[in-house]
């Protein structure tokens, strides 16, 4: 078992930052992102027999991480008793968002964090992590048409927000 733990730790070291980056951008909340990252790796370990090695291990991990984020979101909505508004829930923790670069990327990261959750999820997966719309739709459990609409909405909101920021400066 010691070998298994060591091997798994190697995989964790290889993938943790990327999985955490995805969780952080999807949740826009540092502590939640860390919880989801942990959950993703625990689930990955638990579900190793289901890993189909034809696909990339990183992609498989990302799918698990997305599931962890969505599950966390559902739990939060249940706790708040506001499931109806969960889809359009706007990240309320701008100040808590860990940005990757306090300089050039800060405005963009903050603008992404300010998107409604549904639009943000699609934009993060397609725009930053390069998944196709079909892949994103499958990961999020939504129709491809919905994915396209959310991506359009996200890009529109983000474009407007970034233009506004440029005008202010």
């Amino acid at each position: 078992m010691a070998g298994s733990i060591a091997a798994f730790e190697k995989l964790y070291r290889l993938h943790a930052a990327r999985v955490h980056g995805l969780c952080l951008r999807m949740t826009a909340h540092r502590e939640t992102a860390e919880d989801c990252t942990q959950e993703a790796f625990v689930q990955a370990w638990r579900n190793l027999p289901r890993f189909e090695v034809r696909s990339s291990f990183g992609t498989w991990l990302h799918r698990i991480a997305v599931n962890a984020v969505l599950a966390q979101k559902r739990r939060r909505a249940e706790q708040l008793g506001a499931a109806g508004s969960a889809e359009d829930e706007v990240a309320d923790t701008f100040a808590d968002l860990t940005v990757t670069d306090p300089g050039a990327h800060r405005d963009l990261e903050a603008a992404i964090a300010g998107l409604p959750a549904g639009a943000r999820h699609v934009l993060v997966l397609a725009g930053i992590y390069g998944y196709s719309q079909a892949e994103v739709a499958a990961m999020l459990g939504i129709a491809v048409g919905t994915c396209k609409a959310q991506l359009h909405r996200a890009r529109h909101l983000l474009g407007a927000r970034m233009s506004l920021d440029e005008e202010r400066t």
Partner: peptide, 24 residues
Amino acid sequence: LRALPPAVEPGHDLWPQIESRPGR
């Protein structure tokens, strides 16, 4: 968007918590 680094290191090492999680 493509220029954003996909990897973002967690604020602290999460491995000890993963290793000790009862779910493993």
